[in-house]
């Protein structure tokens, strides 16, 4: 073995450092691995700390301690999780259910709107199409929160705030979702037009083409749209807080858990917040990782299309 290498070295005058190249590559790999491990640590540590903190309890074993100052809680226990389901101040099940209902409704309605809009803008050429696209672009430049003040008033007249905030929020999430057509339009644009033309030649109506040919082909982007629509209510804070203001039975998890960190509560509820955070993150994360493939393709495609 060594003999052969020596022979190569002798004749290969133009690549005298073959061994050192190998060495350098190894060094590079080691550096890269260290970097990756460090990065992974930085990205996971806060989440790990969160899980640790959620198992912190008071000295007497009751749940709901304040902000921890150490990585590992002084007293371990699951009491903070128990508080989530027993304390009448923390209707966690209610919040979770609220968010789940909103997420389901939004996933269905809002993705339907988005897909309808993007399909039309991708496949049909009609008068006013360019105007519509530019108009929506300009509309998107206004801060979204600005609309809430009026919507709050209108929804209040309809009885869809505070007590009925869930219905109101679903409306807010879904009504304007046609404006988020960019990514799925980009996807529809990539499906060859010859497919529709072939179907039209065979006598299909436009509805049939949409329903029987395009929708099945657009499955990846459908899943992406539904996934993002489903995840939105879990993280929404601005609209949810404004519309359900002060009525804790119609909070979503974000507003509910946020309310635990206000000055009057944080000292007794911080670990409860952590426990709630873990319980919310688990299902969402699992769902997300299962459908990761679709998410990645959607995000990547969207960025390239712009």
């Amino acid at each position: 073995m060594r003999k052969v290498e020596k022979k190569v070295d002798q004749y290969d005058v133009y690549r005298p450092h073959k061994a050192s190249i190998k060495k350098r590559r190894l060094a590079g790999n080691i550096a890269a691995y260290t970097g990756l491990i460090l990065i992974s640590a930085v990205w996971l540590i806060p989440l790990v700390f969160l899980i640790f903190a959620s198992f912190g309890v008071n000295a007497d074993g009751t749940g709901g301690a304040g902000v921890p100052s150490t990585i590992f809680p002084e007293h371990w226990g699951v009491a903070s999780y128990v508080v989530l389901f027993t304390d009448s101040q923390v209707p966690f099940m209610r919040w979770f259910l609220n968010t789940f209902i909103m997420a389901l409704a939004t996933a269905i309605l809002s993705s339907a709107m988005t897909i309808m809009m993007s399909y039309v803008l991708s496949r049909f050429r009609f008068k006013g199409r360019r105007f519509m696209m530019n108009f929506m672009l300009v509309l998107g430049m206004f801060p979204g929160f600005l609309t809430t003040i009026v919507l709050y008033y209108v929804l209040k007249m309809l009885g869809l705030t505070q007590n009925g905030a869930i219905g109101g929020l679903i409306l807010v999430y879904c009504a304007s979702s046609g404006m988020g057509y960019y990514i799925s339009k980009g996807y529809f644009d990539t499906i060859p037009k010859s497919l529709d033309e072939a179907a039209y030649v065979d006598g299909a109506t436009k509805f049939q083409v949409f329903y029987k040919i395009m929708l099945p082909l657009a499955k990846p982007i459908l899943i992406y749209t539904v996934l993002t629509a489903f995840m939105a209510p879990w993280g929404d804070f601005v609209f949810a807080r404004y519309i359900s203001f002060g009525y804790s039975d119609s909070y979503n998890v974000a507003v509910g858990l946020w309310s635990l960190l206000q000055q009057d509560k944080i000292a007794n509820y911080f670990t409860v917040f952590c426990a709630g955070g873990v319980l919310v993150s688990l299902p969402v994360t699992i769902l997300f990782i299962c459908l990761q493939r679709y998410y990645v393709s959607g995000v990547t495609g969207g960025a390239v299309k712009g």
């Binding site: 989440l47 946020w258 955070g277």
Partner: peptide, 20 residues
């Protein structure tokens, strides 16, 4: 490696941000 980073997208922002 990618999945590790992606987990932070999946965890709702209000949980991670408030905790951090």
């Amino acid at each position: 490696w990618r999945t590790i980073l992606i987990i932070t997208i999946a965890v709702p922002q209000f949980v991670s941000l408030l905790f951090v």
